[in-house]
Simulated scan of single mutants.
Amino acid sequence: MSTEPTPLLSVEGLAVMRGDTHILRRIDWRVERGQHWAILGANGCGKTSLLSAITAYLTPSSGEIVFDGDAYGETDWNEVRLRIGIVSNALTRRIPPGEDALNTVLSGGTAQLGFWTRSKSIPTDKALRCLGKLGVRHLAERRWEVLSQGERQKVFIARALMADPRLLILDEPCAGLDPVAREHFLTRLRKLAALKNGPAMILVTHHVEEIFPEISHVLVLRKGRVLAAGPVGEALSSETLSQAFGAPLALERDRQGRLRLVV
């Protein structure tokens, strides 16, 4: 009998086709408990399709996805989604402009957007604690329409934490942030990633500069295939990134150990 621990997420032979077009080609990927991953790749490499398949918003053409012991197609995926927190600009755009941050976070208890879809029994104190983890408890009564992009992203992560997810997916969360706001946001993500009982993270990005030190592993996609996967120090290289983005690139580290690309 195998004593190998069950991975948090297992993707085997995942393929997605639309007509004669291959969107994803035999993706094999495992996320072990306690790992934090970044997904890198050029536009059109399949990042969005992979996330959509993992969260059961896109039906694969073939392959198997198992999350937290539950296999895709054999489990009520609406319940499984409660264990997967998702932060993306596509979702944040659906928040009612006049809703305050506290009610946005409260809606995360049932993974439903909008104040009127949430259960009135969800505790307010938990929502305030989730806001506090992101350093934005003071925004509880602030309306969505007056929040900055960075504030919105932090509030939405707090919303995702309401359901105590096992996995937190961050789909290009730094898009639209200026350099200062981006650094403040990444600092808060580092603190969240360092929590002992916090969720595993999957950070989707185009920019290696956003891969903070707590990100332990990276998955690099190219034209729907896995180009590289594994620990950051092993899977990321100038050669790999040059192939992924179709241009000669040099990967460097600054004095603080942060990654950056030189074109």
Rank of each mutant, 00 (worst) to 15 (best):
D125H: 07
L82H: 12
E145K: 03
L186N: 09
D171H: 07
N43A: 05
L241D: 05
E12W: 11
L236E: 10
P97H: 09
A193Q: 04
R33F: 15
L170V: 08
G73N: 11
G13R: 09
T48W: 14
E74M: 05
E99D: 01
H184L: 10
D100T: 07
L249D: 12
K126S: 04
P231A: 11
T205C: 15
K120N: 15
Q243A: 04
L168P: 00
S242K: 00
H217C: 03
A160P: 07
E239R: 02
H207C: 14
W116I: 08
W29T: 02
V11P: 09
A90R: 10
I54E: 09
V16M: 01
M17F: 03
L14C: 05
P97V: 12
C45L: 06
G46W: 14
G176Q: 06
K133R: 15
L102I: 07
W77L: 04
V31A: 03
L189R: 10
T187S: 11
R225M: 04
A181M: 13
R137H: 13
L131T: 13
H22D: 10
R93P: 06
T3V: 11
R253C: 07
D20T: 08
C45T: 05
S121A: 15
G69C: 09
H138Y: 13
F185R: 10
E74C: 11
T6Y: 12
I65D: 01
K196E: 05
S242N: 01
V16E: 02
I95N: 00
A244T: 00
P97Y: 14
H206Q: 15
W116K: 01
T104E: 06
K223Q: 07
L134M: 15
T21M: 10
C174M: 12
P96L: 14
H184V: 15
E74T: 09
C45W: 01
T48P: 10
T110R: 10
A101T: 09
P248H: 06
Q149L: 10
G63A: 08
